[in-house]
């Protein structure tokens, strides 16, 4: 039997908001350690990796490892039925074909149960190599969201260049060009507002704005976002999910066409 209880259902709601733009179906791997999800978007350009540790849950029980294929839009609908204050409990039997979402109001006078059919999904688990990134930038997630939104108006692609001074976002298109530079902030400042660049060597990569705009849907989860980049490897865009876990987005860079040919 599998049972996971989370007092703050709002976290789960936000997680679903953060992945529903990219994914339509996803397999939730439930184990003793917690719930993990890894899925690519349909175009196989980005990858979402979600990790919710078992100790982050208020109550967690997983007798057997389960792989539950779920429709993300359906799950999102169900989670929308929960109030922010509700407590959510996920419950499934061994070898399940359904999963039950139980929402309890804070004073327990309202209990809602939603049962969702599971779907069979092909397992497409990718091994993500451990990488030491050339640049790791921590910055306010809202700032990042804002930059992505602004620059996507100028071009389909955004170039992120990272140097000692800071991080530069630029986009070029038919209307013109846009450049946003963020300098490293002093350490004394508020940590949530800090821009911290840990750099081994400068990096300049180009990414599709469309995917970045999907990633920043995770902004409500965390005040800070961490961008990890190395030349010619995917960008990692990581948001912490409270004390429970994290969600990581991997985005393949755009490369010059000539090089490819």
């Amino acid at each position: 039997m599998f049972e996971a209880r989370l007092v703050q259902s709002v976290i789960l709601k936000k997680v679903l908001e953060a992945i529903k733009d990219l994914l339509t179906e996803a397999t939730f791997e439930c184990s003793d350690c917690g719930i993990q999800l890894q899925a690519m978007d349909n175009a196989h350009v980005s990858l979402v990796s979600l990790n919710l540790r078992s100790d982050g849950f208020d109550k967690y029980r997983c007798d057997r490892n389960l792989s539950m294929g779920m429709s993300v839009p359906c799950m999102s609908k169900i989670l929308r039925c929960a109030s922010s204050e509700d407590t959510v409990t996920l419950r499934a039997w061994d070898n399940p074909d359904t999963i039950v979402f139980v929402f309890e109001s804070p004073n327990r006078d309202k209990i809602s149960e939603y049962e969702m059919k599971l779907i069979n999904l092909d397992q497409e688990h990718l091994g993500i190599p451990e990488t030491l990134y050339s640049c790791v930038v921590k910055m306010p997630s809202q700032e990042f969201a804002r930059i992505c939104r602004d620059l996507s108006q100028f071009g389909d692609a955004m170039t992120i260049a990272c140097s000692k001074e800071g991080i530069k976002f630029s986009a070029a298109g038919d209307y013109g060009t846009a450049n946003v530079k963020l300098a490293q902030t002093a350490e004394t400042e508020n940590q949530e507002e800090a821009v911290v660049v840990e750099m081994k060597e400068p990096v300049k990569l180009t990414f599709s704005c469309r995917y970045l705009n999907s990633f920043v849907k995770a902004t409500p989860l965390c005040a800070q976002v961490q961008l990890s980049m190395s030349a010619e490897v995917p960008l990692v865009c990581e948001y912490q999910i409270g004390e429970i876990g994290h969600i990581r987005y991997y985005l393949a860079p755009k490369i010059d066409d000539e090089e490819e040919n």
């Binding site: 690519m40 091994g127 389909d156 692609a157 995917p234 991997y250 755009k254 490369i255 010059d256 000539e258």
Partner: peptide, 23 residues
């Protein structure tokens, strides 16, 4: 035949699959 013809910089979107192999 460009994968992303809209892209003015003549860049090509790579797939995440080229970086992460199936395990």
């Amino acid at each position: 035949t460009v994968v992303h013809p809209k892209n003015s910089k003549n860049t090509k979107q790579t797939s995440i699959m080229t970086f992460f192999k199936k395990s």
